[in-house]
Design a protein around this nucleic acid. Sequence first.
DNA 1: TATGAATGAGTCTTCATTCAT
DNA 2: CATGAATGAAGACTCATTCAT
Lengths: 229, 229, 229, 229
Amino acid sequence: MVPVDRAGRSKRKSAPQKARPAPRNDRRSARASDQRQARREQILRAAEGVFADKGFHAASITDVIQAAGVSRGTFYLYFDSKRVIFSELLDSLFFKLAACVRPVDLEPGAPSPLEQLRANVTCALRVVAQNENLMGILFRTGQGIDPEADQKVQDFIESIIDLIRRALQRGQQIGVVRQLDDELVAQCIFGSVKEIVFHGLQSGSFARRALEPMVDEVLRYNLRGFLRI
Amino acid sequence: MVPVDRAGRSKRKSAPQKARPAPRNDRRSARASDQRQARREQILRAAEGVFADKGFHAASITDVIQAAGVSRGTFYLYFDSKRVIFSELLDSLFFKLAACVRPVDLEPGAPSPLEQLRANVTCALRVVAQNENLMGILFRTGQGIDPEADQKVQDFIESIIDLIRRALQRGQQIGVVRQLDDELVAQCIFGSVKEIVFHGLQSGSFARRALEPMVDEVLRYNLRGFLRI
Amino acid sequence: MVPVDRAGRSKRKSAPQKARPAPRNDRRSARASDQRQARREQILRAAEGVFADKGFHAASITDVIQAAGVSRGTFYLYFDSKRVIFSELLDSLFFKLAACVRPVDLEPGAPSPLEQLRANVTCALRVVAQNENLMGILFRTGQGIDPEADQKVQDFIESIIDLIRRALQRGQQIGVVRQLDDELVAQCIFGSVKEIVFHGLQSGSFARRALEPMVDEVLRYNLRGFLRI
Amino acid sequence: MVPVDRAGRSKRKSAPQKARPAPRNDRRSARASDQRQARREQILRAAEGVFADKGFHAASITDVIQAAGVSRGTFYLYFDSKRVIFSELLDSLFFKLAACVRPVDLEPGAPSPLEQLRANVTCALRVVAQNENLMGILFRTGQGIDPEADQKVQDFIESIIDLIRRALQRGQQIGVVRQLDDELVAQCIFGSVKEIVFHGLQSGSFARRALEPMVDEVLRYNLRGFLRI
DNA sequence: TATGAATGAGTCTTCATTCAT
DNA sequence: CATGAATGAAGACTCATTCAT
């Protein structure tokens, strides 16, 4: 049965923005704000574990608050909803990953493009290794969370692929990249790295193996795929 | 008419072992069995659409039975649970895909390995294109459904990757594949194809574009990645 | 704290209209429809009592289903929400009351206007007496239920007052009603009857006393108030 | 910092008997008591607005303390519960209204009974006009708050009606009031005035229109209803 | 005295599954 | 075999009240 969307649930609330009082600037409130951050973090970390363990849907608020050791009410004191905290987790992951990727600098003094690529990938894998839970969320949850979160994941992937695509194009312009369908190949590259990451997490390789050889292998594979020779 | 007042039905049993009587072997039951299969198929097809549309969690049994035009009870006459029908759908998808992939035949008279590879990939993409719904299930739903289904997806991926890995090894043995970490590279290959498929479904390319050029591009990319030269 | 309206709760549902299958016209579904009506009625009656007892806010769905002897799920099978069933109760009350009030017929053959007035009021009080619970809902719950219901009550009251006002105007036109502020006096008349009803319910007079004398007293009072002499 | 893990606080006690120390009688405590009163007043005024705006149930303590600019804890320092502060507001309203109504003085030198009646009603309407918030509480909230408050409203209404009833009786004794059912007519009178007030508040007439004509119209209506001629 | 973070019982609602007919 | 009414465990979220600081 297609559930009716609780039509007409009249909102009695006049001011929908949850008014969290702006922290005052004296020492007392500074401490309070610190505590607030700490508590948020505590819940965030717990949620991270729970979501990574069970995926978005199977994880219940009850799971989260039990893991965090806080009460139901406290949870909602810090996060507006299950989806909001999930979204925040997603954001933080994407932020960390995006921070790794920086466009290859072709200026004379810069390190070799290969070095730069390697640095990018190594950084990303390191972030992955250090945030297994968060990555787990990504892989365990997949699509189908809710439109907003789905879109967020989608957008992030798209942005990364676009980055790769543009890099390929520049590579073609300066003659180091062969003739190819940049869109398709960008997807190939992204997909191959993603799969590596996925299996690395699954098998725990990231904890056991040195990252360098893996990075090198993946780079070698992909470089051969798109370099001119 | 008066509702049963708290029928002390307690917990969901985990393994009900519903004893479905084995179909008898006379003509009558043969026909009955045919009908039974038809009904199953009808529900299966409806579920396929619904799951593809909404993903596993958002799809309700109600959605499925409405799409199938059968009653609630009938659904449970043919499938033990939501998870079971989903699982069956997954199975059929994997079966079709797996049917495409056949080990490269190196016998003298066989087509060139490249041809065989191309045939494999083309077949797979064709299956994908012809089963967008089912593929949609896979991508829309991601992991985190329930342990059993998750495992099933996992296992299928693993089996494909393993196939690729063994192919790489054989390629190395006969000297056409370069020195490489076969596990890692197998993952790269699988990941690149998977991503292509994912984006193809998303953008509807499979419906619009000819498959051949896509296959060629992906093959070229990957072959360069692992061939000796 | 001003509660945030669960912003962005994404609706996964594509068809918000709860599709209750139109009952088919054979004997079987006719019976089914009868049962459905009976069950609705059963819940409605229980809800009536509960709401009358506790008022809208204090009454919980749990109260209602316990009173009705049905399960939680069953309740939602018949009513979309607490507010919807309440609204339905309100509607039925207003319908019954409105059915009593018919404009005074001044045609030659008609009963005397006084008779007609008396009939109207008597009918209304009879409805009141026969629907103590429903009336209780009205008086116990007052305003502040939710915007929709509040409006419904408001509208009903307004419509009755308007009826009275127009009757007064017609009375003035034919010269039986004195010069007066028809709006204000209409409110007076309504208010006086309403208060009578309220106290009648409170004290149980409607059950004990004959309605006629009460009606006569109220009519006498009000007629003196607005008749020309 | 670490949250207290399930402080075994069980049920809401029904009568906590919070022992507020009686204020001591030295100057220091006098000042303190002044401050205390001021604070109370501050919160009371804020609550008045909030309750009038939203009604009892929709108004949250959070609304009140935000409007009052005090902290949560402070609120509970001055009022034992949401119901208690509401009750206090109700009391103050009833007190003001009751202060208006004074029995008609039939002594030789007194103003005419009509004048006195008019004075009573005018005063009441003035109180209403000057306390729209408080009245709003009454009408927006209706009954069904909680037993105590419900009873309080009930009792007030009863007391007013009783006052009217006794006035009617005295009127009968001195021969100015016709033969009538004093209980019923008292209810009529009260109801008519109440309805006028209700609509006056709704439409904002009390702010716009002069009170005098309204009072006169209502008095005229009611006087005709119960005076001997 | 003032604060506001924390609490958790309680609310409405959903939906996979069962079973009498 | 088919039906669909009934079930109730479980979920997300609220908010009056408490209490350590």
